[in-house]
Amino acid sequence: MEEDEYAGGVIKKFLYVNRRQPHGTVYALESLETVLIGAAFDQDVSMLFIDDGVYQLKKEQSPDGIDMKNFSKTYRALEMYDVEKLFVERESLEERGLSAEDLLVDVEVIATADVKALVDEQDVVLSF
């Protein structure tokens, strides 16, 4: 596709904010598709998982029982797309009885106060 050839030379800081559980609505899946396509543009990409969005990274998902595609393994492939800055809000994990060990990928766990700083430093914030 023509967008794979994008050669504008501009590098912006993109933050994808994932706020929703992986199933129930299509936002999580379609957000991930945006991240994967966006990787071709060589931007400075970070992802933030907050609220029920932390469930997107939960290990051992098996949505086959509800006839949903298990796309959770794709988060482990993000590294190959040079998407390596994954942030998870600590309070969101704790409220749900989760810790970093419950997650599929290595993440940086940050406090709510640091979330604000992270968002502030971005050029483009896409929140799904």
């Binding site: 596709m1 967008e3 994008y6 504008g8 945006t34 396509i37 071709a40 931007q43 483009v124 896409l126």
Partner: peptide
């Protein structure tokens, strides 16, 4: 494609959702 969204984010001063 979705590339059009990313391109818009890069080229616009503000992307409003």
């Amino acid at each position: 494609g979705l590339g059009q969204l990313i391109e818009a984010g890069i080229e616009a001063d503000r992307l409003i959702t």
